[in-house]
Design a protein around this nucleic acid. Structure first.
Lengths: 142, 142
DNA sequence: GGATATTAGTTAGGTTTGTAACTAACAATA
DNA sequence: TATTGTTAGTTACAAACCTAACTAATATCC
């Protein structure tokens, strides 16, 4: 089994390992403090960063399946972090928006994320970090 | 909401998006062709690359929980890709090894992975690819 | 040697996820 | 305006997962 190509350098594997390693650490912020799941956190962040939008838009932006979004939205609504308003001109759509409380939670988690990311960044040179970002963005588009 | 810090640059998020994007594409090889799950594929690859070992070793190497490994091993055994042998000197341990058939599957998937990775690599300069690998490896260790 | 603690791996029960079928609203065509 | 199709979002059911409790084997300590 002469290997030039190593499992640890196989991109899907290496990315998953890295993603898992960083995600586990951040989980404790949204999970312990607010009882949120990963998808809920993502939905909250998207609404916090980009403002109110429909579930469909959210699916497209976040590359999430509509059932996952549907369930996350229900959960966030139960927690009173998010409200929905059926659109008048087409009653199939509903606008999702953070409540006041949801915005507070977002602000809190946003700060936690910023710090967490800064901690991670300290392991890299600015050049590495920039290239890493660039590469990840490119991969996500494939 | 003036943002210097963007969701798409939050490492846990960006890594997950990238990991998901690349994993979905590779899934079809092990899933369609061999009906394997992600964890099963990982176990198979570890045994293929590093040779026989115990479940405990596998857990440590692959950063997988023992219940996940236990189930993947059972599944691979059902498929006749893997066999177990209780160790004589300590009958709690069992040595996991690929069967002949398992090795063939590994060889096939190994080739698929190599090609898949080469395709992905074509999106990067050699320098980018090298830095990407280096960064991912470093993150996984955190 | 016998009681107690650890360790490798499995099983059980509840939670989360994925897939596919569904409902309700709108669009298009006749 | 009826028929047929499409679309946004939900629900149902099965598969997968997580956590914690378990079994069986070995180690430790008296």
């Amino acid at each position: 089994m002469a290997n030039d190509f190593d499992l640890s350098r196989f991109l899907p594997y290496a990315l998953n390992q890295a993603a898992e390693a960083t995600s586990v650490g951040f989980q404790k912020y949204y999970r312990q403090k607010y009882g949120m799941l990963r998808t809920e956190w993502r939905v909250l962040f998207h609404l916090g960063q980009y403002g109110a939008m429909t579930a469909k838009e959210l699916c497209a932006r976040a590359s999430l399946h509509k059932t996952k979004v549907s369930r996350a939205v229900q959960a966030l609504e139960r927690k009173r972090f998010l409200s929905r308003t059926t659109q008048e001109h087409d009653r199939r759509y509903e606008t999702l928006a953070l409540t006041r409380q949801g915005q507070d939670v977002y602000a809190d988690l946003y700060e936690a994320a910023r710090k967490y990311d800064a901690d991670l960044s300290s392991h890299f040179s600015p050049q590495e970090r920039e290239i890493l970002n660039r590469c990840l963005e490119r991969i996500a588009r494939i």
